[in-house]
Design a protein around this nucleic acid. Structure first.
Length: 648
RNA sequence: GCCAAUGUAGCUCAGUUGGCCAGAGCAGCUGAUUUGUAAUCAGCUGGUCGGGGGUUCGAAUCCCUCCAUUGGCUCCA
């Protein structure tokens, strides 16, 4: 007998060689029906794998990430099995579970596959699933594995195997499909009830663009049809929140093929929104001792040679602008920092002046690959809410922490609750990708980790993700479809001060080198607005929204009164307009609701007689009537509430 | 840049075994209506069917190419 410890601490005895499924059955029939995988002493196992010694276990169901993972991983194998039957020539790459579903990368040889073929593959998957194939685990040696896959000409598999350590390799088999796999898997295919293949895409083998591009098929599966239905509804809802769609509906921005792809054109309402965001941040930054500066959109090539950007990105950037006579070369600026370094160099600095904080809403231009462009989130010309802090090494950590405060304040004000933070460090095995000394990198990386830890942020560390001149802390927020975007960023930089030979005179009357912090709380106005749109579905906070109120007339008899109301609102700085179309009030309500105008003000006979307005809140309905002054107070209090949850 | 797909009026979309002057709803314009809490009625305007080339007696429809967009991959200072 062996002792099995359950998550609640209770211990049960089982025969040696019992399985996860046996344990589940011994607890309850319902659990046995729903359990998908098991952790044995912290390792993920199949439910059918015999347990030979004492262990503590956790059973995973659909509701657990581990359970879903096993389910989708097994589904990827099912997809592969279906592909093998339908397209015998196919060769397999890898097929993992992902955050929502799974994919399989396959090589169809000369054949191309299109999405029109997906329904047939789905059908085959469902057929196979209902045949209840067991997922059978098998241990073999590396040599045997190489021979086995070699015989089948599975060159992607043999490449993977040859890189594995010598020893035992596990295979999983269901029906006549066998795959190299660590597992774990479901006991059998029958629990996969609902299948949806979502898209076909190209994906380079092992993520290397120099290697062959395989066909990736994305899919998702569920143990019940209604879960799939719900997921498809979610996808539809997410589409409605897409910032590209809402941006068009609310007339915030547009693109023109004639102006150029990836170059956003901000329409009046979008420009208004953006301006308010800028003013909001300027106000916060003023309190933190930032000073606004302004620099041009181009700079001499030499500037970027000095900064190191030219060597790193010159070939992949917009190419230099040349002058007619003198043959000078200028680059569109890809970053503001070199310009700000030159501002710093305008005069000598004393340690008493530091930290110096130069801020600029600086528009930069980067050549992004055409296939990368995506609405406002990935563009070729964008405005960073940039600033560079020049400080002494002693001041670095405190300054870094203050920047974190600004970012958290902004996220809180705009109700971004589900952000993640990522510390990006240099790849120690690939240091030639970066500039600067090992010593400076260490100092910079330590400073970030200390500051972030002291701030109590919950962060993940990614090595190899640093900027080429320094490590960074990024704040990531998801869009409506769950795609992660980097918004705020803070970067520590010892290198540019050296390259630009920046100095200050210390208390010891000696020259010293300052440290630089690059930071952008929004990241870029474009991307930030995009994510804000998706978060709010276009219902912006009252303080930010382009139009706060609309005055709607019952009939044209009340046009004059409506204009009086509008004048009053203007006097109180309420952003508003009149809807005096010859339409019924129901129609005006509908149209302005759809335009996400927060307050709909109705004026007719009653209101004119009593000198009031009838107030309706977007999405909520009638709020009764009040005087314009009362409404202004009411609205201003709401704005105050939106902005006051922050104490700097 | 690569793989796959899409592109018909300002917007959403019909229209493919190739065949009468290419359609609808919404938006816009004109007129009627003077309206009380999510769509008033009528008329009209609007498209070189993404651009170019080809096949054909005939192309929105088939082929080639370019452009743009979408979903991914690679990249992201």
């Amino acid at each position: 007998m062996i002792k099995i410890t359950l998550p609640d601490g209770s211990v049960r005895e089982y025969d040696k060689g019992t399985t996860g499924l046996d344990i589940a059955k011994s607890i309850s029939e319902g659990l046995a029906r729903n359990v998908l995988s098991i952790s044995v002493n912290g390792d993920l196992w199949d439910l059918s794998r015999p347990i030979h010694s004492d262990a503590s276990i956790v059973l995973h169901k659909w509701e657990n990430e581990e359970g879903k993972h096993a389910f989708w991983h097994s589904s990827a194998h099912l997809l592969a099995q279906a592909l093998q039957e339908l397209y015998p020539q196919v060769k397999f790459g890898i097929g993992p579970a992902i955050e929502s579903g799974f994919y399989y990368d396959v090589d169809f040889g000369d054949k191309t596959i299109s999405e029109t073929e997906l329904p047939a593959i789905e059908k085959k998957m469902k057929d196979l699933a209902s045949q209840k194939f067991d997922y059978i685990r098998e241990d073999i040696s590396k040599e045997e594995a190489l021979t086995y896959f070699g015989k089948k000409n599975e060159n992607y598999k043999t490449e993977l195997i040859s890189e594995l350590e010598d020893g035992t390799i596990t295979l999983y088999k269901q029906g006549n499909f066998t795959d190299l796999c660590r597992g774990p898997h479901l006991p059998d295919t029958s629990s996969i009830k609902a299948v949806k293949l979502l898209s076909v895409a190209g994906a380079y083998w092992r993520g290397d663009e120099r290697r062959k591009q395989l066909t990736r098929i994305y899919g998702i599966t569920f143990p019940k049809q209604n879960l799939l239905d719900e997921y498809l509804v979610f996808l539809e809802e997410a589409k409605k929140r897409d910032h590209r769609k809402i941006g068009k509906e609310l007339e915030l921005f547009t693109f023109s093929a004639k102006v150029g792809m990836g170059l956003p054109l901000w329409l009046p309402k979008g420009a208004m929104l953006r301006e308010r965001l800028e003013n909001f941040l300027k106000k916060v930054q003023k309190q933190y001792g930032y000073q606004q500066v302004v620099t041009p959109h181009i700079g001499q090539k030499e500037l970027y040679v000095t900064s190191g950007h030219y060597a790193k990105y010159g070939k992949d950037s917009f190419q230099p602008i040349t002058t007619p006579a003198e043959g000078e070369e200028f680059l569109l600026k890809p970053m503001n920092c070199p310009h700000h370094c030159e501002i710093y160099k305008d005069k000598p600095h004393s340690y008493k002046e530091l930290p110096l904080r130069y801020a600029e809403f600086g528009t930069v231009y980067r050549y992004e690959q055409s296939g990368e462009l995506h609405g406002l989130t990935r563009v070729r010309g964008f405005t960073q809410d940039d600033a560079h802090i020049f400080c002494t090494p002693d001041q670095l950590k405190d300054e870094f922490k203050k920047v974190i405060d600004i970012i958290l304040y902004i996220f809180k004000t705009l109700d971004f609750k589900n952000f993640t933070t990522q510390v990006s460090l240099r790849d120690p095995n690939n240091t030639e990708k970066y500039i600067g000394s090992d010593e400076n990198w260490k100092k910079a990386e330590d400073a970030i980790i200390e500051a972030v830890s002291e701030k109590g942020l919950d962060f993940v560390v990614e090595t190899g993700e640093a900027a080429f001149y320094g490590p960074k802390l990024d704040f990531m927020v998801k869009d409506a479809l769950g795609r992660k975007w980097q918004l705020g960023t803070i970067q520590v930089d010892y290198n540019l001060p050296e390259r630009f030979e920046l100095e200050y005179v210390g208390a010891d009357n000696q020259k010293h080198r300052p440290v630089m912090i690059h930071r952008a709380p929004f990241g870029s106005m474009e991307r930030f607005v995009a994510v804000l749109i998706e978060h709010t579905a276009g219902k912006f906070p009252l303080w930010l929204t382009p139009d706060q109120a609309v005055v709607m007339t019952i009939s044209e008899k009340y046009d004059d009164y409506a204009k009086k109301v509008l004048n009053l609102l203007n006097n109180y700085d309420i952003r508003s307009f009149v809807d005096d179309r010859s339409e019924k009030i129901g129609r005006k309500i509908r149209d302005n609701e759809l335009k996400r105008i927060p307050y709909l003000l109705i004026v007719g006979e009653k209101e004119e007689e009593t000198g009031t307005i009838s107030v309706r809140r977007q999405g909520e309905g009638d709020k009764g009537s009040m005087t314009v002054e009362e409404f202004v107070t009411f609205l201003n209090e709401e704005v105050k509430r939106e902005l006051e949850n922050i104490n700097i």
